[in-house]
Every structure is written in C-alpha cells, then in structure tokens.
C-alpha cells in the first residue's frame, strides 16, 4: 500500500517535472504517461477477468468470482480513463477529439462489453447466478477482443481516415521520456495490483459477513 503510494508520488513528479516537454505538442504530451499505462492495465484487467471466469466455471469457488468481478470493475474504470484521456491526446495530435480508428473503436467496444458484464451481475436473480452468467461474458468478451480488433482494423483501412498526421503514440521518444513511461507503467501496475487485492479482500469480508448474518438468522429461527 505505502509502496504504491510513494511510487505514485514519484511517478507524478517524473511525469510533470522531470520528463522533458515535447517540442511540438507541449505539455499535453504528458498525458501519454497516463494514457498508455491505463490502456495496458485495462487489457491486463480483462485478461484477469478471463482467467477468473474460467477458474470460477471450473471450480465454482467464490474467490475466483471475486477476482474476476473486481478485475472487471477496475478494467471498466481504466477503460473509461482511456476513453477520456484518449480524446484529450487526440485533439492536439490529430485535430479531432475522436476518430473511429482500430484502437479507439476496439476500446469503446471493450468498454461496452464489460459495462454489460457489470450490469449482468447486478441484474441477476441471485448472487451465484450473477457470478455464473458474468463468467460466461468474461470468457466470451475476452475471446471476442482480437476478432473485434481485426474487423475494425480492416474496416478502417478500407475507408479513408478523417485526419492523419502528427506524431504516433510510440514515435521516437526521448530517453528520459521513455524512462518516465516505463516508470509510470510499473507504478500504475503496482497500483492496480494493490487496488485489485483491496477489492478482492473487501468482497471476501462481505461474503463472510453475509454468511454470519445468514447463519444467525437460521440459529435464531430454531432457538426462539
């Protein structure tokens, strides 16, 4: 926890003070150090959802569901941040807030799939059914991602792009920029793991508490 906090502080320093300012784009380029780790973590989170879902369907142990659903919550959070930071980055670089390119479109579709995942959980008749059904979506969604990406990518290459120009994301980075990016990736990943751990243990506590309440109800029923 503390380590993650310190790292995030150091990370902020690197991003805003230490990393050199990009020549043509200026300060707005610094959003790269947040945008890229967010995107990586979103995909990583959905991979965790996939693993948790497969394990839940196999073992039917609640902890796997807790892992999958916690990762899905974080994944949706990070995808949302990607979708917010993306346009802020795109506007000065491409001249538009949004363009239907492969990466942006896939991210948007991804966001929709996992928002559906979270909705499915809350609309289920009961908890175990919600866990079961969302595991299905956790698997279907992850398998679908590469197909979505290819489809959108081919589709894009067939239609003229609106605006192309400016720097690409991974273009030639100054060594200090590169260092900052990697540092940011590492510290955000650690932050993600800490958040995931927190969320999973919170869910475990919730389950234990409910189990306690449940058994008290039953005990009470019999003794009174």
């Amino acid at each position: 926890m503390a380590a993650a906090g310190l790292l995030m502080l150091a990370n902020t320093y690197l991003i805003f003070m230490w990393a050199p300012t990009e020549a043509t784009l200026g300060h707005v380029q610094r959003i790269l150090y947040i945008h890229v780790p967010m995107a990586w973590l979103a995909f990583f989170a959905f991979f965790v959802v996939f693993v948790g879902s497969v394990m839940y369907l196999w073992k039917r142990q609640r902890r796997w569901d807790a892992l999958a659903s916690s990762a899905a919550e974080l994944g949706v959070l990070f995808t949302t941040l990607v979708l917010i930071t993306g346009p802020i980055w795109a506007k000065p670089v491409w001249g538009v807030w949004w363009t239907w390119d492969a990466r942006l479109t896939t991210t948007l579709v991804l966001w929709l799939i996992y928002v559906g995942y979270l909705m499915l959980r809350s609309y289920g008749v009961n908890r175990s059914q919600g866990a079961l059904y969302s595991a299905v979506l956790g698997i279907v969604g992850f398998v679908d991602v590469p197909i979505v990406y290819f489809a959108v990518d081919w589709w894009r290459t067939q239609h003229q792009r609106l605006v192309i120009g400016g720097a690409t994301l991974e273009g030639n980075l100054h060594p200090d920029m590169r260092t900052t990016l990697f540092f940011s990736l590492a510290s955000f990943t650690l932050l993600f793991l800490v958040l995931l751990w927190q969320r999973v243990s919170m869910k475990r506590t919730e389950t234990e508490l409910e189990a306690l309440e449940g058994s008290q109800e039953l005990m009470g029923g019999r003794s009174v």
């Binding site: 579709v109 559906g116 909705m119 979505v148």
Partner: peptide, 12 residues
C-alpha cells in the same frame, strides 16, 4: 440485457 450484451460482441 439482451441487446446490451449482444451487439458489442457481434460487432465484427
């Protein structure tokens, strides 16, 4: 729920 789940997945 059905259209919300269905359309993103079949977008390809």
């Amino acid at each position: 729920m059905l259209p919300i789940l269905f359309f993103p997945v079949v977008s390809p």
